[in-house]
């Protein structure tokens, strides 16, 4: 009910129940630029596998008993460097990847067909792509920009890896920097803009429903996830340029409650970095957030309570650089 300013304190239980290193995937020839989890399988059986990306290749790893991982397949992508893996929820035998030099220039799908036991590439989109997100039900939304205009588009994917349908979404004036699906609302999508606003779309009609300013406390916020509850829209944001303050520490994630009817907002929860441990790179899944600290540790938060629940210190082999 009340927006709390929670101090960044690591729960005592997190020290005891913190993250443990359970396995290592070693790929000495290729420094990792991204990692993601994917469902993979055949004949009705599927298991959670991992994909690691280097600039020129993607590797699929599967669990091997008892506690290790083996490389199942490698795709070589030598023409354009890999920038990121784009997770597509609820898909199987499919990896979506964004490629480019400094910015994303193309989005490709890599698909395995168990019927023909073969892999194939499919080019989904090209352009000067600023942001991309994979949504449930085989949908992908991206924003791209030319000198004159911005294009925001949703592509519905077919199981063979092609595009089944394309829906143009009305672009805001400002560049869209990130998208996030709204939990439990299939046709709603939120985005953040370069002008530090949250925008809301209707994915079915392509309408831009609302633009709501975030405020000046945390410039250039990035949205990760949104939930609609009791007539309010709760948006999980990270603050890549947030500054450390004495009272609140360094902000990692915040949950803002917006009233989409009026455009007004209030802070609902804030997750701060442990004192004296700056850091930024982060990711969100459901109501948990993770970030890499500059010290080389990984911190995990319960975003709705604004509490740091686990901390993984740097490993013997070095500092963590990326958390997914």
């Amino acid at each position: 009910d009340v927006a709390e300013q929670l101090t960044p304190v690591l729960l005592d239980s997190a020290r005891e129940e913190g993250l443990q290193l359970v396995s290592e995937l070693k790929d000495p020839w290729a420094p990792c630029v991204d990692v993601s989890a994917v469902w993979w399988g055949a004949g009705g059986r599927r298991e959670l596998c991992l994909v690691t990306a280097s600039e020129s290749a993607l590797s699929l790893w599967g669990p091997l008993p008892p506690h290790c991982w083996g490389k199942l397949y490698t795709w070589h992508l030598q023409e354009v460097p890999v920038i990121q893996i784009v997770p597509l929820p609820d898909t199987c035998n499919l990896v979506c990847v964004a490629l480019g030099e400094l910015e994303i220039g193309e989005i490709r799908l890599l698909i395995y067909s168990s019927e023909t036991d073969s892999f194939k590439h499919s080019l989904l989109k090209t352009g000067n792509i600023k942001a991309v997100v994979g949504l449930k039900d085989w949908r992908l939304v991206s924003s791209s920009r030319t000198m004159q205009e911005q294009q925001v588009e949703m592509v519905s994917l077919s199981e063979s890896g092609g595009s089944k349908d394309r829906q143009t979404l009305m672009p805001p004036e400002e560049t869209v920097t990130a998208f996030a699906e709204v939990e439990g609302m299939r046709e709603a999508l939120v985005g953040t803009t370069a002008g530090n606003s949250v925008v809301v779309w209707n994915l079915k009609t392509g309408q831009l429903l609302r633009k709501m300013h975030i405020g000046y406390s945390y410039p250039a916020s990035i949205c990760h996830r949104a939930y609609s509850d009791s007539g309010l829209l709760f948006v999980v944001l990270s603050h890549p340029h947030g500054k450390e303050s004495e009272c609140c520490g360094s902000p990692a994630f915040g949950v803002l409650a917006f009233n989409p009817r009026t455009g007004r907002s209030a802070a609902a929860a804030s997750s701060g970095l442990p004192p004296g441990q700056p850091g930024r790179q982060g990711d969100v899944w459901d109501t948990a957030g993770a970030a890499v600290l500059t010290s080389g540790a990984v911190a995990v938060w319960d975003l709705l309570r604004g509490r740091c629940t686990a901390l993984l210190p740097p490993g013997p082999a070095g500092h963590w650089a990326l958390a997914r």
Partner: peptide, 23 residues
């Protein structure tokens, strides 16, 4: 977050905004 801070709340905000926004 109280209603006085955020203004009148509607459970059907998505449908209402979709009906009001330009097509």
């Amino acid at each position: 977050c109280s209603e006085s801070d955020l203004g009148p709340i509607s459970l059907n905000w998505f449908e209402e905004l979709s009906a009001e926004a330009p097509p």
